[in-house]
Amino acid sequence: MIQPLSYIHPDAKIAANVVVEPFSTIHKDVVIGEGTWIGSNVTIMDGARIGKNCKIFPGAVISGEPQDLKFEGEVTTAEIGDNTTIRECVTINRGTKDRYKTVIGKNCLIQAYSHIAHDCIIGDHCIFSNSSTLAGHITVGDYVVLAGLVAVHQFCKIGSHAFVTGGTLVRKDVPPYIKAAREPIAYAGINSVGLRRRGYTPEQITEIQNIYRVLFVQNRNLSKALDLVEAEFKATEIRDEILTFVRNSNRGVVKGFNQGKTGV
């Protein structure tokens, strides 16, 4: 159902059962999948690729040109996966020639006033709370939760199942499965609540805790701690994911935090 007070370019590819509310504008090079709802006063610009059963609330601007002085008008996209909800006044910029696309995965919730800049790649099942702000070229894994007013520096990476507390400034990479907090940002334990909700077993959670005790709690040199984890922990998908993430970090990972505790 398309309201007569909305504007849709005749070349836009809109599935038959998409709802577009009044005063929304959809530009030429746009694809929107079945069952998606577009609220009032939404602007969807060239390059938008929106999946099935999405909800986009009033005031959102999807696939705006990158706020990057190096952008030269190249043809790029902003892609939103199925079943993702974009709340009020969210802005999502399309890519540049770095990645040629900005991507938000499936089943995500991007809450009001959040901004996702050019060339960000966001995984599935992520929740970004109100006014979360991502600069360009950021990579976020699956099931990541950003609390309100989180700001992430360009080129940072956030691993799957990580939780970043409200108001945190993310200047370093955040490894998978952890909570990150404080100023400057630091390790604040593992995301045990989120892991239990997603079906991780007690044994898997204990494995994650023990690995991060070695990396972040015992005041070891990080490179030596990585070697110790590889030598003393059985090879598992979880262990290898953590080791690969930390070793491949270009910006460096968050610091450990130790208040004299012997555990996490």
Rank of each mutant, 00 (worst) to 15 (best):
Q3I: 15
E183L: 15
A235R: 15
T77G: 05
L69N: 05
I104A: 00
R220S: 12
P184I: 14
K234F: 08
G123T: 05
L228N: 12
S114P: 02
E65L: 06
M1S: 11
D46T: 09
C108K: 00
F128H: 04
G260Y: 07
K179C: 14
R247S: 11
R171I: 10
G263D: 13
R198K: 15
I8K: 06
Q154L: 12
D119A: 00
N17A: 06
Q154R: 09
A112T: 09
K52F: 12
E72N: 15
I238D: 11
L222A: 11
I116S: 00
P58K: 10
K255V: 12
T168R: 09
A135P: 02
T84V: 04
H9V: 05
V20S: 02
Q3K: 15
N41L: 08
D173T: 03
R171T: 12
E65Q: 10
L243Y: 08
K70Y: 13
I178Y: 05
E79C: 04
Y113S: 08
G148S: 13
V61I: 12
A147N: 11
Y212M: 10
T76V: 04
E203M: 07
G256F: 09
I116V: 09
V217Q: 07
I38D: 03
L222T: 02
L134M: 14
T139P: 01
G123D: 07
V19G: 09
K157C: 12
Y177F: 15
G141M: 07
V103T: 00
D124G: 04
I121H: 02
I50D: 00
D142P: 07
S6V: 08
G64H: 03
V90G: 00
Q67I: 08
